[in-house]
């Protein structure tokens, strides 16, 4: 039972840790890292579903017949590279926020915004 579902449950734990960081931490850099943890957990979920017992990596050899499913590998391979590109975009936005507010802390930014609205 435990080994049957262990992958899925660890994926859920990682996903929830990423989610928790995103909603509870006020630092924008840490939010980005939370997002990458969330992302990695989804990758692990997909790759776990593609695994076949006793299979090997999907590179064809004459002596083997059982391979793991290559389709999730393709989807996740491209998702990883797209993920780093979007992370870079997020970091660029954070750099601009830092120039405008002098901080990457959400609470400080909100306080500055409210002060500006009152003025």
């Amino acid at each position: 039972m435990l080994a049957d579902y262990y992958n899925y449950w660890v994926v859920i734990i990682l996903m929830m840790i990423g989610f928790y960081i995103v909603i509870s931490d006020a630092n924008l850099i840490k939010k980005i890292i939370g997002l990458t943890i969330f992302q990695t957990s989804v990758f692990i979920l997909f790759i776990s579903m593609g695994k076949v017992d006793g299979g090997t990596a999907p590179i064809l050899v004459d002596t083997l017949t059982v391979y793991s499913n290559p389709l999730p590998h393709v989807l996740i391979l491209t998702a990883i590279v797209v993920g780093v590109a979007t992370t870079a975009l997020g970091l660029a936005i954070i750099a601009r926020i830092h120039r405008a507010y002098g901080s990457v802390d959400e609470n400080v930014i909100h306080a500055q915004d409210e002060k500006q609205e009152k003025a």
Partner: peptide, 14 residues
């Protein structure tokens, strides 16, 4: 988990 291509990418990118 047999995903060598993905592992390669994750090590280089992540």
């Amino acid at each position: 988990l047999d995903a060598v291509d993905v592992a390669f990418t994750e090590a280089a990118v992540g």
